[in-house]
Amino acid sequence: MPQRTISVRLVREMRNFLPPRSTLLLALLASTVMAHGREVNVRSAYISGRSSEGVDRLYVAPGAATLLRFQQPCDSAGTKMLGWEGRFEPVGCTGKSVVIVPLVRLEPEDRFLLVVRLADGTQVPFTLSGANREDARPPDQQVNIFLEPDTRETLQEQLENARAREEGLLDDVRRFYREDTPDHALAKLVASGAIQQTPFRLFKKRIIKSEGEETTVRIYKGKAKAAVLFTVKNNDPSKPWNLLEARLVTIRPGQDPEPYVFGDKKPFALRADRDEIAPGESGNVAVVVDRSAFTAENGSAELLLEIYREDGWRQAYVVLDERLTRE
């Protein structure tokens, strides 16, 4: 992932709002800690014939380079893209790889023609368009290109991909059954704004302003459970906001949660009211935590709840205390 310089804006009004050294809620703030373990979107494309008969579509987005890998070297002189000026960096062609780097967001209806010429003279065309989450198409980060689908190497690749897709479907089924719980039902109600239908009572509310977003954080108390609602307003004029992941880990009392924390992971229920937040719109991410999550070997523990946006940067965090579950 390319390095970025992000301005950090901390929100520390909470320390003045709470009693000194309160452990009920230590801080709310936006930060720029990189999320670990993010998966890379890799797929394979099988193109029949050795001419322009097969045209594969590539989905690209700014901030994510797309790498094409071929079975033979490419010819940089014969690799061209039409109308790329101002919207892409010059297409890079090195060895068996072609690198595409968008500079601006493309709309799903935008189309750009890329023709890659290989060392043996074969020309492989591609159509480039903007990634569209509504069509469940994230940006391509690596695409392995196979021009002879009947070779042993290609058939082996197809078999491995089929097995990976099957395992992915099984994971989805397992996740569905894991998330069919009362806590997930409560989280769905919180995310939809139906807080009056839950046992939770508002405890604290804070607004976090950062570059491109404004996040309102509401912390709720409840009997044997606590809840947190993140309402994100996307102020970016063109880029949608997407949730990458949420984390809930234990921390030591008084520990500074600003760096990336490596604590014991704890279970929680999460629901969002939409897959992505369009520019100018707002969306909710709700988390419900059971009292049992605060249990540690030496008694009760404080918990750090974090949410990360799609580019891997931490959007906000909350430090929670077990007393939130004592309604």
Rank of each mutant, 00 (worst) to 15 (best):
D171V: 13
V173M: 09
V173D: 12
V173E: 14
R174V: 12
R174M: 11
R175W: 05
R175S: 10
R175G: 08
F176C: 13
F176L: 15
F176N: 12
F176A: 14
Y177W: 15
Y177K: 08
Y177S: 05
R178T: 02
E179M: 06
E179G: 02
E179W: 07
E179F: 02
D180K: 11
D180S: 14
D180I: 04
D180Q: 10
T181E: 08
T181M: 04
T181L: 04
T181A: 12
T181Y: 07
P182H: 01
P182T: 03
D183I: 03
D183K: 04
D183Y: 04
H184T: 15
H184V: 14
A185Y: 08
A185V: 11
A185T: 12
L186Q: 07
A187M: 09
A187F: 08
A187Q: 05
K188Q: 06
K188G: 01
K188P: 02
K188C: 07
L189K: 06
L189R: 09
L189S: 04
V190S: 03
A191M: 05
S192V: 04
G193K: 08
A194M: 13
A194Y: 15
A194R: 14
Q196K: 14
Q196M: 11
Q197E: 15
Q197F: 15
Q197K: 13
T198P: 09
P199Y: 10
F200W: 04
F200A: 06
R201W: 07
R201K: 14
R201E: 13
L202G: 06
L202A: 09
F203I: 03
F203K: 02
F203D: 11
K204T: 11
K204H: 14
K204N: 15
K204M: 12
K205I: 11
K205E: 13
R206A: 15
R206D: 14
I207N: 12
I207A: 09
I208A: 01
I208F: 08
I208Q: 06
I208D: 07
K209Q: 13
E211S: 13
E211T: 15
G212W: 04
G212C: 10
G212A: 06
G212E: 09
G212Q: 01
E213G: 07
E213C: 13
E214C: 00
E214A: 04
E214Y: 00
T215N: 10
T215E: 07
T215S: 01
T215Q: 03
V217E: 03
V217P: 08
R218Q: 12
R218E: 15
I219N: 00
I219V: 14
I219W: 00
I219S: 04
I219F: 02
I219C: 01
Y220L: 03
Y220T: 04
K221A: 12
K221Q: 14
K221P: 04
K221N: 02
K223C: 12
K223A: 10
K223I: 08
K223V: 09
A224F: 13
A224M: 09
A224D: 02
K225S: 05
A226K: 00
A226L: 08
A227Y: 01
A227Q: 00
A227I: 06
V228F: 05
V228Y: 01
V228K: 10
